[in-house]
Each structure stands twice: as C-alpha cells, then as structure tokens.
C-alpha cells in the first residue's frame, strides 16, 4: 500500500473535480464515479462521455497498483485499450481492477466498470503501466 501516493492520485485537481472516490472493503478496492451532468458526453441518449469512463478506469487501475504494493512514484500509463460494451447511463459508475502481472518496471492491469449490475459491465480497460516499486529504488522511472 502506498498511502501517500494514493492521496496524491486522488487529490489531483482533475480527479477531485469529477469527485472520483476509492473505497476499500477488506482487500478489495472499488472506485466510484458519482454521476454529475459534467460527465455527460451525449445528452440526447443520455450517455456518459466515453473519455470520462476511460479516465475513471485508468484512475482505478492506478489506485489498485498503489494498493497492491509500496511504490516510489505514481504509476504512469504506457498504453490502455478500452472496450465500450454498453452506453453508460446517467447514474454512478463503479469499477474494480485486477493486477494481472506486476514486474519490476511494468504492470499489466485489467479493470471493469459497471452501473446497475456487476454482470452487465459498461466498459473494460486493459493497460500497461510503468511502475516504480519501492524496493527497487526510485532511481529510474
């Protein structure tokens, strides 16, 4: 767990602006993106902006990496692939991430976002992050 870096991640102006929260229950981390009109991408459907949902999944993925082990720096995304499975409606969005593999430099993370039902995800993310585990020192990013 990297408590200080988690705080840095969650108090960043962008993250605070959209009210993203991370809730820890036992060892499981759940991200919450509370609905606000500022997240709507297409008001005619109405659906949340794909970019907002993608960014939320990225934040939850970073958060899960910081919870999984002590880090010297914030994880930095190398690449992400987001699949949009259903329109995200004008409701809160939740997400959980799984660290599929965490090496000394690179971590592979999968995350899933849902609204009403966990078995009906609205989007999934799969990404690689550059990480700096505390034990390996902070010499190189």
């Amino acid at each position: 767990m990297s408590r200080v870096l988690l705080d840095t991640l969650m108090t960043a102006p962008y993250v605070a602006r959209f009210g993203v929260r991370l809730e820890m229950k036992g060892t499981e981390l759940t991200g919450v993106l509370p609905f606000s009109n500022d997240l709507v991408g297409n008001p005619l459907i109405p659906a949340l902006h794909g970019g907002a949902v993608g960014a939320f999944l990225e934040i939850v993925a970073s958060g899960s990496l910081l919870v999984s082990q002590p880090m010297a720096r914030l994880p930095r995304p190398i690449d992400v692939a987001i699949d949009y499975l259903r329109p995200a409606r004008d409701q809160d969005v939740f997400a959980r991430a799984i660290v599929a593999r965490s090496g000394r430099r690179v971590a592979n993370v999968r995350a899933e976002a849902w609204q009403g039902r966990t078995d009906a995800p609205v989007a999934t993310l799969h990404g690689h992050f550059l990480i700096t585990p505390e034990s390996s020192g902070a010499a190189q990013g």
């Binding site: 960043a12 602006r17 794909g50 970019g51 907002a52 960014a55 934040i59 914030l74």
Partner: peptide
Amino acid sequence: SQALIGDPEAGTLHGGVITALLDHCCG
C-alpha cells in the same frame, strides 16, 4: 487548465483529458 492537472508535482494535465479529447476527436 490548472483545474485539470493530473500530477500536481509535474504540473501536467491528467491523462483523462487526453483520453476524452482523443475519444471525442475520433468520434
């Protein structure tokens, strides 16, 4: 915009802004 910073130390925009911009522009 200061309000959209992702890394306060580096002072760089949050990746989410770039994600949303790319999504919107591609759309």
